[in-house]
């Protein structure tokens, strides 16, 4: 996937990351703003972003909504113990469901932690969260040995995205892991 057909300047990319990870100013031409800060041309900025995207270092340049502000106050981390040989296919299926914001395969840690598939759910009520979990359980069926859902009760720290205002977004929970 990361075929390096178009290598980019890693030092410049690092400066771009530092400059933009907290967000871009809302101006008609954000690339020109980046170009001015980085002291390169606007074309170089666009080419750098495109190269980073092609090589998988940049997912997208996007508007990141705050799901919490949109009314999604309940966040449940569902965890599932599924057979390793089916985990990839099942993870892809869970990721397609509309309320799943993140879906990851992680190692088990036996005996205390038997779960390997993680799917993050968001809802406006606890009951809605329980319904969503039941949908996931129905989809996994007998492929899942056991499961649990860890509902977040409090956000204690969230600095990973360096958002400009002290808002919190459950939608980004554990995004960087």
């Amino acid at each position: 996937m990361s075929s390096s057909t178009c290598p980019y300047d890693a030092a410049l990319a690092e400066r771009l990351v530092a400059l933009s990870e907290g967000g871009l100013p809302l101006v008609a031409n954000p690339w020109a703003w980046l170009a001015e800060q980085l002291k390169v041309s606007e074309e170089q900025v666009i080419a750098l972003l495109q190269a980073m995207q092609q090589q998988g270092a940049l997912r997208r340049v996007a508007a990141v909504p705050n799901h919490y502000r949109l009314g999604y106050l309940f966040n449940g981390m569902t965890v599932w113990d599924v057979a390793d040989e089916h985990a990839h296919a099942l993870g892809e299926q869970l990721a397609q469901l509309p309320n799943v914001s993140h879906c990851y395969l992680r190692p088990r840690h036996l005996p205390q932690w038997p779960y390997n598939l993680f799917a993050m759910l968001h809802a406006k009520s606890r009951a809605e969260l329980d319904n969503q979990r039941a949908e996931l359980a129905a989809l996994l069926g007998p492929a899942c040995q056991r499961s649990d859902m860890l509902v977040s009760s409090r956000i204690l720290k969230k600095t990973g995205l360096r958002t400009r205002r002290p808002a919190t977004s459950e939608g980004d929970s554990h995004a960087a892991s």
Partner: peptide, 25 residues
């Protein structure tokens, strides 16, 4: 308006952090 109301956390690049370093849950 969306940014002021807090509905948008930000507009900007979403990097693949896994490639930029290491992390764990």
């Amino acid at each position: 308006g969306l940014a002021d109301s807090g509905v948008l956390s930000r507009i900007g690049p979403v990097f693949e952090h896994r490639r930029a370093g290491a992390s764990t849950l």
